[in-house]
């Protein structure tokens, strides 16, 4: 598809979609969102790019192979789960760190849960893009 409108709109939309996907990932713990939804939205951005500019250009924009992204997402999630073992808890037990916590303010919450969710994000993004790119290139 070489429609000028699509290509011009894509330039704007892809960036927005990617930022939106990360926002969805980060807010997921308290509001609708999360790694799965974020990954799907991120994938939509690259698919849009692939439709407008071809999958070759989309692959270049992605820099990494989508398969690699999917597999490293799995590794990230697994490592986040392993981190639960360090303090002696069961595997996949969430570990939390509240940076700068004071009385009344819990500070900046950091957790292995977020890392795990990032792994989910990467797996979904990578797997969907693997499938879509392969389909587009095959057909």
């Amino acid at each position: 598809m070489t429609s000028l409108i699509v290509r011009a709109a894509t330039r704007l939309l892809v960036g927005l979609l990617l930022m939106f996907s990360i926002w969805m990932l980060l807010r997921g713990h308290n509001d609708p969102g999360g790694g799965f939804i974020g990954g799907l939205i991120g994938a939509t951005g690259f698919i849009l790019y692939a439709i407008a500019h071809g999958s070759k250009a989309a692959r270049e924009a992605l820099r990494l192979d989508p398969q690699t992204i999917a597999v490293s997402g799995l590794a990230v999630a697994f490592l986040a789960g392993l981190a639960g073992l360090i303090p002696g808890d069961a595997i996949f037990t969430g570990q939390w760190l509240f940076l700068g916590a004071t009385e009344g303010d819990k500070g900046l919450p950091l957790s292995t849960i977020l890392v795990f969710d990032l792994g989910v994000y990467l797996v979904v993004l990578g797997a969907v893009l693997t499938l879509v790119f392969a389909l587009e290139e095959e057909i």
């Binding site: 789960g81 996949f92 795990f116 792994g119 989910v120 693997t130």
Partner: peptide, 25 residues
């Protein structure tokens, strides 16, 4: 929903994303 996915039942989710990755590959 998300807390269940990534914390309470994280092991299940890990299994599921493994399936997604394998399905993609």
């Amino acid at each position: 929903v998300n807390v269940i996915l990534v914390d309470f039942r994280a092991l299940d989710t890990f299994g599921e994303i493994a399936v997604i990755a394998v399905a993609g590959l």
